[in-house]
Amino acid sequence: MDVVIREIQDTDYSDLVMLWNNDLNSPTVTSENVTARVERLKSNENYKIVVALLDNKVIGCISMVQIMALEYEKGYLQINGLVVQENVQQKGVGTKLINHAEDFASKNGLSYMILNCGFQRTKAHEFYESKGFDRLSYCFTKAVQ
């Protein structure tokens, strides 16, 4: 399988919406808001969105941001989202996206990669652990009014 990894382009947005909604089950990414959201992220050099392509169709995506924090000397890379189309999972696409993120973090002198993953996504937990990630904490969220 000849998968190409590259930064997202505006021609990828409709594929991204389908991928995010169908395979990550996250209906907050819609055709109506994806362009504005992605363009806003791309306007900040700390954010990167990278896609995996097979036959010029988006089959995977990773969204990440460089973050500075007191507890890390050089900062870290936060993976905000990683999704691979279900019918090509376990074929190396997620590994290529994680490797790309790790290369990016290394080239930018970042100390760690961090991500959050829902409790229900047990297969994803196994994948992340197989890539060297450790379970260290819970993620707490609160809506702001």
Rank of each mutant, 00 (worst) to 15 (best):
residue 4 V to H: 09
residue 4 V to W: 04
residue 4 V to I: 15
residue 5 I to P: 00
residue 6 R to E: 12
residue 6 R to S: 09
residue 6 R to D: 06
residue 7 E to S: 11
residue 7 E to P: 06
residue 8 I to V: 15
residue 8 I to H: 00
residue 9 Q to P: 03
residue 9 Q to H: 12
residue 9 Q to K: 15
residue 10 D to V: 08
residue 10 D to Y: 08
residue 11 T to N: 13
residue 11 T to G: 09
residue 12 D to P: 02
residue 12 D to C: 05
residue 12 D to E: 07
residue 13 Y to A: 04
residue 14 S to V: 07
residue 15 D to R: 02
residue 15 D to K: 02
residue 15 D to I: 01
residue 15 D to T: 03
residue 15 D to H: 14
residue 15 D to N: 09
residue 16 L to C: 11
residue 16 L to Y: 02
residue 16 L to D: 00
residue 16 L to T: 03
residue 16 L to M: 13
residue 17 V to W: 00
residue 17 V to A: 06
residue 17 V to E: 02
residue 17 V to T: 03
residue 17 V to K: 01
residue 18 M to F: 07
residue 18 M to E: 14
residue 18 M to N: 13
residue 18 M to L: 12
residue 18 M to H: 13
residue 19 L to P: 02
residue 19 L to E: 03
residue 20 W to K: 01
residue 20 W to R: 01
residue 20 W to F: 12
residue 20 W to Y: 11
residue 20 W to C: 05
residue 20 W to I: 14
residue 21 N to I: 07
residue 21 N to A: 10
residue 22 N to D: 15
residue 22 N to E: 15
residue 22 N to A: 09
residue 22 N to M: 08
residue 23 D to C: 08
residue 23 D to V: 03
residue 23 D to T: 04
residue 23 D to E: 07
residue 24 L to K: 05
residue 24 L to A: 15
residue 24 L to H: 08
residue 25 N to F: 10
residue 25 N to P: 02
residue 26 S to L: 14
residue 26 S to K: 08
residue 26 S to E: 14
residue 27 P to C: 05
residue 27 P to A: 05
residue 27 P to K: 08
residue 27 P to R: 06
residue 28 T to M: 08
residue 28 T to D: 11
residue 28 T to V: 08
residue 29 V to C: 13
residue 29 V to N: 03
residue 29 V to S: 01
residue 29 V to I: 15
residue 30 T to L: 08
residue 30 T to V: 10
residue 31 S to N: 11
residue 31 S to V: 04
residue 31 S to L: 11
residue 32 E to K: 10
residue 33 N to C: 08
residue 33 N to H: 04
residue 33 N to K: 04
residue 34 V to N: 00
residue 34 V to Y: 00
residue 34 V to Q: 00
residue 34 V to C: 08
residue 35 T to W: 07
residue 35 T to A: 13
residue 35 T to G: 10
residue 35 T to E: 15
residue 36 A to F: 05
residue 37 R to M: 11
residue 37 R to F: 11
residue 37 R to I: 11
residue 37 R to H: 08
residue 38 V to I: 15
residue 38 V to M: 04
residue 39 E to W: 04
residue 40 R to G: 11
residue 40 R to N: 13
residue 40 R to S: 15
residue 40 R to I: 02
residue 41 L to D: 01
residue 41 L to A: 09
residue 41 L to S: 04
residue 41 L to F: 09
residue 42 K to P: 01
residue 43 S to C: 06
residue 43 S to I: 02
residue 44 N to Q: 09
residue 44 N to D: 15
residue 45 E to G: 03
residue 45 E to C: 06
residue 45 E to F: 07
residue 45 E to Q: 10
residue 45 E to T: 09
